[in-house]
């Protein structure tokens, strides 16, 4: 195909550009992977009340520290396994829009720790109304919808890993990802109560 479409996207499809930049800027280092999986284990298995990263490596780039803290926060706000790669993209998007993000994260994490929270329900009510609470809602929004806002110019963090699809993964297709083999998708209805584990 001609160069036009590429140029067109580069000029006009900001989403696409941001996505590819995000990919380029975020090579997954071994350490990041380890930190990510540590955060994941903490978040999913125990939601430990002890600080997840008591001794973040002193040499860690501030971006990495931010990501780690963001994953810690996300694991407190969402009771599911979270992808560090998606988290890194959301963190970057959040940092661009919220200058005081680090302080808000500290505030929310402190409240959760103080409540010895195991799930979000344990502490969410205690976050005072205001910017920190709005930020907490936004973080949840981003993970569930995969985008920064409902608007057409939203940043895209993920499509197929957006948590909305996980809530219905036992029945509903993630559009464009095949569900089954040829004509093998007849299935009886399933009750609402059987929430998939994710």
């Amino acid at each position: 195909m001609g160069g036009f479409l590429q140029a067109h996207f580069d000029d006009e499809n900001a989403t696409r550009r941001q996505l590819s930049e995000a990919k380029m800027k975020l090579p997954v280092s071994r350490r990041r992977l380890l930190i990510g999986s540590a955060a994941m284990a903490v978040g999913y298995v125990a939601l430990s009340t002890s600080p997840a990263f008591p001794a973040a490596p002193a040499a860690a780039a501030s971006g990495e520290a931010l990501n780690a803290k963001f994953m810690r926060l996300s694991n407190l706000l969402i009771n599911h396994r979270l992808s560090p790669a998606v988290g890194a993209r959301i963190a970057e998007g959040a940092a661009a829009d919220h200058k005081d993000m680090a302080a808000m994260m500290d505030q929310i994490i402190a409240i959760a720790e103080q409540k010895q929270a195991r799930v979000v329900e344990d502490f969410f009510e205690d976050i005072p109304a205001g910017p920190a609470k709005e930020f907490a809602h936004w973080v949840i929004f981003a993970w569930y919808s995969g985008v920064s806002s409902p608007k057409p110019d939203a940043k895209v963090f993920t499509f197929e890993e957006a948590l909305t699809f996980q809530t219905t993964s036992d029945v509903v297709t993630i559009p464009s990802y095949g569900l089954s083999g040829p004509n093998l998708w007849s299935q009886a209805t399933v009750p609402l109560s059987q929430m998939p584990r994710f």
């Binding site: 009771n79 329900e121 569930y144 957006a162 909305t164 809530t167 219905t168 929430m195």
Partner: peptide, 24 residues
């Protein structure tokens, strides 16, 4: 999804609301 999120729910209640609205 956006409508469910707009309700301000979190945790289990949010999961259940998205699932309900998708199915129902």
């Amino acid at each position: 999804t956006f409508a469910a999120l707009k309700k301000g729910l979190v945790g289990k209640a949010l999961d259940e609301e998205i699932r309900r609205m998708t199915a129902c």
